[in-house]
Amino acid sequence: MADSPSRFDATDLGPGPVAHPGMPRWVKVFGIVAGSALLVAFVLMHTIGGGMGGH
């Protein structure tokens, strides 16, 4: 974290309350990929199976 965040991470839209712009696309993609990878790993470990963690 060498650099500090810029004072305003989003476009300054002026005074008054501004709604949160929502989750960025990269966060959604990252979440989907990570979730899918965990699901695949879980399924693999249980189907390949008897060998994993066993003798």
């Binding site: 974290m1 650099d3 305003f8 991470d9 989003a10 005074p15 309350p17 501004v18 949160h20 712009p21 989750m23 960025p24 990269w26 966060v27």
Partner: peptide, 25 residues
């Protein structure tokens, strides 16, 4: 992630930033 630091404030971060802007204003 550490190097690229992709932009995106959480709701908590967004709220905090706007509160501090309001205080400064």
């Amino acid at each position: 992630l550490s190097v690229y630091k992709p932009k995106g404030l959480t709701r908590y971060g967004w709220r905090g930033q706007h509160e501090s802007r309001a205080r400064e204003r």
